[in-house]
Design a binder for these strands. Structure first.
Lengths: 189, 189
DNA sequence: CCGTTGATGAACACTCTGTTCGGCTACCTG
DNA sequence: CAGGTAGCCGAACAGAGTGTTCATCAACGG
């Protein structure tokens, strides 16, 4: 119903694009709703019929991304390679550089970082299920390590304009993070 | 001069403590200058003679911490152990749990996270200098990996009320991150 | 003890927020 | 292609928070 109206799609697209531009220009927390309105050339009341506030707009944009990312993960089986999830994230990000530049770079703001971290932690824990009775290291802590390493490398790539390609970044992840992970998993098995 | 006046010390201490309490209660971005004023029972004009805005107060508090952390690093020699810096950070944080809970937990806000990340990256790069001509992996990327892993584990510890002790957390860091790091350094030497 | 310095609170202009409402117009559907 | 629906607009509003100013008072250190 609501999603099909051409005017609705137009308005939401204008607002989202304006937000991305402004985040990239001055950082999320310095962007005001007024800025978005002016840039998108959309009326004030219109904005509030679509989104409760600035954060709701941001999260709507983030949700678009995360759904696609989820789909990509659903396709890949939970194999034995502990670096596979990170590689999938890297490939995904390299394929959507503008969005990641705005949402996940240093200017992206804490909100997206927090949500992205939670999403990644969830995907990672689901993927490399060690289903252990008494893990030598809490599973949550291992997931946190993988998430931090993945996001750390990704943030570095974003701030360096996505150098090389996703495979190279994944290779680096393997060199740095994989040895410790496989050792831990082997030790337990 | 200005630092010695009892009134100045009192005012700044009141403001800092009020900010910590409020951050812990509702998160940095939801804390207003007005909140701090009410909690600290300090006049509005007084606040602005000491700090330009809310962020300046936060950074002043952060600087106190970071100076002490710097001193701790200055004492330890740049040895061969790649996990030593992380361990030093963990010990430091476990010794100042209230401050870290307020500043570096999930409620700490993006500003401190950014500054802490930069500080750690700086300390880490200075500590494990590989001074290599053509590193197989950019030095900045390795530093980013260490920083992310350290902060990831630290954030997990904060959110889980500092379980076990700093040594245990450092041990986990060694298990997870050290294998990859030593392999990389060995390969290059 | 006294001159200096900081604290105070009220008042001010300003920016941004989130809501309301009447009128207009583009849009889907039949 | 006609009609009612539904989205857009723009202006206006109250409210919260910000950062500044100033005259007054009190506490401080030398």
């Amino acid at each position: 119903m609501a999603e099909q109206d051409r005017r609705v799609r137009r308005t939401r697209r204008l607002l989202r694009d304006a937000l991305f531009e402004l985040i990239f220009e001055k950082g999320y927390d310095r962007v005001t709703v007024q800025d978005v309105l002016d840039r998108a050339d959309v009326g004030r009341s219109t904005f509030y019929t679509h989104y409760r506030d600035k954060e709701a707009l941001l999260l709507a944009a983030f949700d678009e991304l995360s759904e696609d990312l989820r789909d990509e993960f659903g396709a890949s089986a939970p194999g034995a390679d502990p670096a596979a999830p990170a590689e999938a994230v890297f490939r995904f990000a390299y394929g959507r550089q503008p969005a990641f530049r705005a949402l996940c770079g240093k200017r992206g703001g804490e909100v997206v970082q927090r949500h992205l971290r939670r999403l990644l932690a969830e995907l990672l824990t689901a993927h490399l299920r060690p289903d252990a009775a008494d893990p030598p290291v809490p599973a949550g802590l291992v997931a946190e390590f993988c998430t931090s390493a993945t996001l750390g490398l990704l943030g570095w790539a974003i701030d360096n304009d996505f150098p090389h390609d996703a495979g190279w970044l994944a290779g680096t992840y393997r060199r740095l993070a994989e040895p410790g992970l496989t050792a831990l998993l082997a030790e337990h098995a």
